[in-house]
């Protein structure tokens, strides 16, 4: 046992131990590099940090809905003069939320939650899918929390009965 505090973990540096030469991290740091190209009068947008992913996406969705609504009203107004416009297919600008792939409608074969092989069976008590009786033996020995972990890998949130 080395004496406590006797050895300090060395920074993976190129053998520099004197404090005069900076560490590798110090060498790689660009904090003090000059940045003449930056506008000194720029003040940070307060909006910058205020929003998290959820609000950004929510906003995006809301904006999309509002835009579609105004467009619809506008077209209806235009259609009063020119009824053919209604039949014209309007190409909407796709947005981030619009291009999201739809939920799957193709049935997929079930996979064994333990082994990943094909799973023709489901354990009624845990809801785990399994390949054969050998895997079932293992499922029977699983604690409920581990069974839950297996389910959550498949994205199944367990419902407390």
């Amino acid at each position: 046992m080395p004496p406590k505090g006797g050895f300090k973990k060395k920074v993976p540096s190129d053998g520099t131990e004197t404090p005069l030469t900076p560490t590798l991290a110090g060498q790689l740091s660009y904090l003090h590099e000059p940045r003449p190209f930056k506008n000194p009068n720029y003040t940070k947008n307060t909006n910058r940090r205020a929003k998290n992913l959820k609000t950004v996406l929510g906003q995006e969705r809301e904006r999309e809905r509002a835009e579609r609504e105004t467009r619809r009203i506008q077209r209806e107004i235009e259609a009063i003069d020119n009824p053919e416009l209604l039949d014209e297919v309007f190409e909407e600008a796709p947005t981030y939320t619009m291009i999201e792939a739809p939920p799957s409608v193709i049935p997929h074969k079930h996979l064994c939650d333990i082994t990943g092989l094909e799973a023709p069976y489901t354990d009624p008590t845990t809801g785990l899918r399994y390949h054969d009786k050998n895997v079932y033996e293992i499922i029977k020995g699983l604690s409920t929390s581990i069974a839950k972990d297996y389910l959550s890998a498949r994205g199944v949130r367990s419902i407390v009965k």
């Binding site: 792939a101 799957s104 409608v105 996979l111 890998a153």
Partner: peptide, 21 residues
Amino acid sequence: RVCEAYFAPGMAGVDSAGLAE
């Protein structure tokens, strides 16, 4: 199995159509 999730994200709990679909 891990790569198959590109074709069936549902198996990893992502409710979305896969590449083929």
